[in-house]
Amino acid sequence: MYRLSIFLLLFGIWIVFSGQFDGFHLTLGVLSAAFITAISSSFLFVDRSKGFGDRLREIVLLPGFLLWMLYQILLSNIHILKLAFSSGDIPEVQPSLVRIKTNLRTDFGKWMLANSITLTPGTITISIEGDELLIHSISKATTEGVMDDSMERKIARIFEPESK
């Protein structure tokens, strides 16, 4: 089941990138997609214990999360723009290192949380050590923003509904 979906995904990417619809190119596409699925299908969807319902919920809830993420990226760019054009020696910049704890258990959830923190205004994840994230924050206000766990709850609702 997983192998079939990975095969279809790779074949769709092949069709978009090659742009040719004659028999020869489609045969090449089927062969290469099948080869890659055979040797490295275990790299994608690492957690195979999830059921069909879980995957369906992820597919339904993910676009809303991505749209919210896009809005956050827009906010963080406006924040950078405001900082870059403020006069003097940029008094808003008061950088500090922060450590926060997370309750997410899976590696994928932690990766998603780290990338989301990087893309929200004023914070960058430096490293993940166990269940702690080391974060560089650019000002006092963004430090307080990263302390509350609303983003973590958003991610947990999509990928790990049983852990909250």
Partner: peptide
């Protein structure tokens, strides 16, 4: 937004804050 990133990478004081300008100014 490109202008914001380019000015940020000149004006910000240290490597980490420049990283903010470089990493976020480009994506959007």
């Amino acid at each position: 937004f490109f202008v914001g990133g380019a000015i940020g990478i000149i004006r910000f004081p240290d490597f980490y804050t420049r990283m903010h300008a470089a990493g976020k100014g480009d994506t959007m």
